[in-house]
């Protein structure tokens, strides 16, 4: 077999130039985080971080983002399976619809949720008649955050499903396994890396969600004021607190990325 190799000098030149750009990019990303750390009132850190408002917001953030990650998983797997495995005419339409929240400005998503599920929204009456009211509740915050972060789960699972060697599923079928057994015992274990990546991405996106939450669920202490909302609130009143909260978010996000996204980082 013959192969055309690019001239070595061309490759070497690109290999010298592009890493420089990559290095500059990494510095530009790192700079604001470092600035944040330098600006932080470390002396008051303990007091700021243990104030009731901060602890509340942190707890709420963990609840909302974890709830959104779980909900995204429950919705995301069926959607990803349908996109990856079922052939039907509207497949690209479905993909466009479920990925739309990714490109939609989050605040628009929040307003749209309000129009649909708000008290005077399209389905607000129906929900109220069965005793459900989403806006300005923690459940509402979970819905808003899920709306924005679920596409990350769907994308991750769909690419995971497309990467599976389906012969193993066929082997399981010849051993007598029906569809659900194949999914439970063959597909899900094989999908573990994609599941981990999906959860990490979804959870991280959920943790930082601001626009949709503030529009749909408002910023109520103990109910919907998650860390990002608390930061926004603090920006106008107590900049030191805002910076400390910001660093707290950075730390949590990095931890998630390192714990769950290990495979993504090292591949």
């Amino acid at each position: 077999m013959t192969r055309t190799t690019p001239t070595p000098s061309g490759v070497l030149a690109a290999n010298r130039v592009l890493p420089i750009v990559a290095g500059v990019a990494a510095l530009l990303i790192l700079l604001p985080v470092v600035a944040l750390a330098l600006r932080a009132p470390w002396r008051d850190a303990a007091g700021l971080l243990t104030s009731p408002g901060v602890l509340d917001a942190a707890k709420l953030s963990l609840i909302v983002s974890t709830g959104a990650a779980v909900l995204s998983l429950l919705i995301g797997f069926p959607v990803a399976w349908t996109l990856a495995r079922v052939e039907f005419p509207g497949r690209s339409v479905l993909r466009t619809v479920v990925l739309m929240p990714m490109v939609l400005p989050p605040i628009v998503g929040g307003v749209a949720l309000l129009a649909a599920f708000g008290r005077n929204g399209l389905l607000g009456g129906v929900l109220a008649s069965v005793g459900i009211s989403l806006p300005f509740t923690t459940a509402g915050a979970v819905v808003a955050v899920t709306f924005v972060s679920c596409p990350f789960m769907i994308l991750s699972l769909e690419s995971g499903l497309n990467g599976l060697d389906r012969r193993f599923e066929r082997a399981a079928e010849t051993l007598g396994a029906g569809g659900w057994t194949v999914i439970r015992r063959i597909v899900l274990p094989a999908l573990a890396p994609a599941l981990r990546a999906g959860i990490a991405l979804t959870w991280a996106r959920a943790l930082g969600e601001f626009g949709a939450t503030v529009a749909f669920a408002g910023s109520h202490p103990h109910q919907t004021r998650t860390l990002p909302l608390a930061i926004y609130d603090a920006l106008s009143t107590d900049l030191d607190a805002a910076v400390m909260l910001g660093l707290l978010l950075v730390a949590i996000s990095l931890a998630v990325l390192l714990v769950l996204g290990g495979r993504m980082l090292t591949r």
């Binding site: 012969r167 066929r170 082997a171 079928e173 010849t174 051993l175 007598g176 396994a177 029906g178």
Partner: peptide, 11 residues
């Protein structure tokens, strides 16, 4: 379907 055939297959 394959799962109901009772056909063993070594790949």
């Amino acid at each position: 379907p394959a799962c109901a055939r009772r056909v063993g297959f070594m790949f």
